[in-house]
């Protein structure tokens, strides 16, 4: 059996509309190994959330999805709603960005978590209630019995996000997809949630696809990172390697825009230009227009996937290292 909990290969997602088709995901390839946290970073509109929704089969019927997505060995694309329902919750669960809107304000939080559990598992209400208390304890909610009967408005953002994590984990999924789960929270609460997730991964044989735009959070939490730009992963590898020696110009540019404490007050660098229009076909490298190391070939030919280190890959013509083996097997198809 494969040790990959999530495997996405050559994913393409297009949203058709009357005037133009938006090609939101272009040949995106990534995977999450068992027991690891993969950080998926990129700016707004780079396709992070669409990728994660596709992994759960949550894109609406109007989206045209092509490629392969395997969650714990099971194919997601073109499955019926009933088949997907069996995978969701039990094999893979999701936490959303804003805990204030993800919960129903009319129901007690304990009941909402219990509903999620009873939806996918046969058990008595009494048993379910016990499991919810345990889940609340696991996410370090103080006084689980009191928390159970609280309504969302009676809790703080940090507490609500813990409830969301408890709801995702109560069905014991193998993969957790977390879409910017700390973005709406204060830094002190963010630090609490990061430490909690680290602990849960160590304890529960859990794997996480962690979507964020914050490279600091990636450094603090993730084992590997995949950087997205214009609908594709442009660089991926172990966090220690990618952040220390980024091989794609977009990754290095992104890192330089982050203001850091203790940095001198020279002008912050920024990435000039705009993200490409996703409704127009991209010829060559999508980052070429904004790249400082651009050469002629970048405008003409899509860059191949190169192995710059054992496990660090880069889609850049200027990156050193051999073209990745699977690329050659697939006939150089990007």
């Amino acid at each position: 059996m494969s040790d990959k909990v999530l495997e996405i290969r050559n994913l393409n997602v297009t949203f058709p509309s009357l005037e133009r088709n938006v090609h939101a995901i272009r040949n995106c390839t990534l995977h999450v190994n068992r027991g690891e946290i993969l950080g998926l970073v990129g700016e707004s509109g780079s396709g992070k959330s669409v990728t994660s929704m596709a992994a759960l089969g949550l894109l609406g019927s109007s989206a045209r999805v092509k490629g392969n997505i395997r969650v714990v060995g099971r194919e997601i694309i073109d499955r019926s709603e009933a088949e997907l329902q069996e995978i969701r919750g039990r094999k893979v669960a999701m936490i959303f960005q804003n805990p204030f809107t993800a919960l129903n304000p009319f129901f007690q939080v304990g009941r909402q978590v219990m509903d999620a559990l009873l939806n996918s598992h046969f058990m008595s209400k009494e048993e379910a209630r016990k499991r919810v208390f345990q889940a609340f304890k696991d996410v370090r909610l103080p006084d689980p019995e009191i928390a159970f009967n609280r309504y969302p408005h009676q809790m703080s953002g940090g507490q609500l996000q813990r409830v969301m994590i408890a709801m995702a984990l109560v069905c014991e999924p193998e993969l957790l997809i977390a879409d910017e789960p700390t973005t709406a929270l204060d830094v002190t609460v963010q630090a609490q949630i990061i430490l909690l997730l680290r602990e849960l991964v160590a304890k529960k044989n859990l794997s996480i696809l962690f979507i964020t735009h914050d490279l600091g959070v990636v450094a603090a939490l993730c084992d590997r990172v995949a950087v997205m730009y214009a609908g594709m992963v442009v660089e991926s590898g172990p966090v220690v390697d990618v952040l220390a020696t980024p091989s794609h110009p977009y990754t290095s540019a992104l890192m330089k825009t982050v203001p850091a404490l203790g940095q001198t007050k020279d002008d912050l660098s920024y990435i000039p230009g705009q993200v490409p229009d996703m409704s127009v076909p991209i010829i060559g490298c999508a980052f070429a227009e904004r790249c400082t190391k651009v050469s002629e070939v970048c405008h003409k030919q899509a860059p191949p996937r190169r192995a710059v280190l054992t496990d660090q890959f880069s889609f850049c013509h200027n990156a050193s290292g051999p073209v990745a083996l699977d690329e050659i097997v697939a006939g150089g198809r990007l």
Binding site: T188, A191, G216, A219, A220, V240, L243, A244, M255
Partner: peptide, 22 residues
């Protein structure tokens, strides 16, 4: 507050300290 900001350096990830309580 300063200690809860994650550093860009993954080697410093164990320096992240969370405030307890609310």
């Amino acid at each position: 507050l300063l200690a809860s900001i994650p550093s860009l350096d993954p080697l410093k990830k164990n320096q992240l300290v969370a405030l307890s309580g609310e």
